[in-house]
């Protein structure tokens, strides 16, 4: 147990503005207990009042409202990201669509890996190539592979200019599914994170709405 505080000394230093915060807390604590010696009436009045003021709080239910902007910010970001992802997936899908199951298949089929760049280019510029193809024969890629394939397989009808990396449509479909699953997985992950943040924001938001209702 600490020694009894030297109240007269503390008080005289308090009035002079020479007490520390700790000493001032001691004074408040001392004067908040009963009974108070008669000679300290005024001091007790002051310190009790100060202590009482320390417990003044913002009225319950009227706590401040913060515009729930951060939640909107997150949502817009998520929405923008989702749209971008979906657009990307859509474009990718459209570009792969022309590979009909009955397409006489890709002259590059046996060498998927080495032929990929060529295939991509041709897919993007399909209409252009169609024109070119009528004007000039054989197409640029023909000599490269002609050595490995009989000349008959090199022939392609004008309607099937798209080359691709997949020989088997089923395989292509599987790849698309896998890619879309990946995109979907990423979106779900993002949604989870947003959900966590939203829960926290909502907790405070409830308080703010109350305040708004009351203050009208």
């Amino acid at each position: 147990m600490k020694n009894k505080p030297d109240i007269p000394d503390l008080l005289s230093r308090y009035w002079e503005g020479e007490t520390t915060l700790e000493e001032e807390r001691l004074l408040k604590a001392f004067f908040s207990t009963d009974p108070i010696p008669e000679q300290y009436r005024q001091e007790a009045e002051l310190f009790r009042a100060l202590r009482s003021e320390q417990s003044v709080q913002m009225p319950a239910g009227r706590e401040m409202r913060i515009a729930p902007r951060p939640a909107y910010r997150l949502s817009w970001r998520a929405a923008a990201a989702s749209v971008a992802l979906l657009l990307g997936a859509g474009i990718w899908w459209m570009n792969r669509q022309p590979l009909a199951p009955d397409t006489p298949v890709a002259l590059v089929a046996p060498e998927n890996k080495t032929a990929q760049p060529t295939a991509t280019t041709s897919a993007v510029t399909a209409p252009e190539m169609e024109k070119e193809k009528t004007a000039q024969t054989p197409p640029p890629s023909v000599p490269k592979v002609s050595g490995r394939r009989p000349p008959s397989t090199v022939h392609r009808p004008p309607s099937t200019v798209n080359e691709d990396t997949y020989e088997d449509p089923e395989q292509a479909l599987e790849e698309i599914k896998a890619a879309l699953a990946l995109v979907s997985n990423k979106i779900n992950k993002g949604k989870k994170e947003i959900g966590k943040g939203l829960q926290e924001v909502e907790a405070v938001d409830i308080l703010f709405k109350k305040k708004k209702e009351i203050s009208g």
């Binding site: 002051l46 009042a49 009482s52 417990s55």
Partner: peptide
């Protein structure tokens, strides 16, 4: 708005003192 809940007599006393200070 005070968090403390004194008795009615104490409350009056406290209010008088606090108001004066």
């Amino acid at each position: 708005h005070s968090a403390a809940e004194p008795t009615p007599a104490q409350e009056t006393e406290l209010r008088d003192m606090a108001a004066r200070v």
